[in-house]
Amino acid sequence: MTVMELSNLSVTLRRRDVIRDVSLSVGKGEFIGLIGPNGAGKTTLMRAALGLIPFVGNSSLAAMPLAERAMAVAWMPQQREIAWPVTVETLVMLGRTPHVGALASPTDHDRSQVDAAIRWMGLDDMRQRAATRLSGGEQARVLIARALAQDTPFVMADEPVAGLDPAHQISTMQTFARLAEQGKSSLVSLHDLGLAARHCTRLVLMSEGRLIADGCPAHVLTPERLAEVFGISAWYQDTEQGPVCQPLEVIR
């Protein structure tokens, strides 16, 4: 069973090919890291897959009606926008928007989903604080909790760990890994190859709008690819404590 199916997806912005012929299938219970240098098209690929920007090709998510898609996938954009000083609890409850009717108020089930998301991201102490007054890293965790509260089989997040401290980076990656264990899938763009190698079940490598490699971390993070795509050398080893990938030098 797949939660997202992209075939020959291309995006052209201002007559420039930003994404070219990307085909990707995301199965149940996968935690996929989307990696690639700046400008490789990671964000554009995710936004096109969601149907937020025009594209050519097929995306199973973009083909759905809005309300149905909101039940199928949750999206956490890179811009961590919180426009108004609402409480953390209120903000996480926004994730229930697709489930709560236009004139209905949240049910006990909605509240328990919000509680669970808040607990998962360790936000219990700040439930009643204004989300705009939190630190950048805390805001990121609140927004992840919001996406979790949407309770969809698939979560897409654009650089969810950027700006988090090491402990919260690891626990966020573990959150997605635990979702995968429960049969929920996620596609997460990342710049930290170490975290990607260690936690993701599968990596998708992009460069200049094309999909370069797709597979398990050891298969994707080869020295040749890292040199060619990122222009770096790295130390990669399957150790007793799991796979370790440590970038070393710039070689271009």
Binding site: L52, L66, P77, T97, P98, L143
Partner: peptide, 20 residues
Amino acid sequence: GRGLDAMTLGEDAAEAMGIS
């Protein structure tokens, strides 16, 4: 009201939550 609440998180996030 519902759409404006969702817009707290920006246009992209609101659209992904089913708001046209």
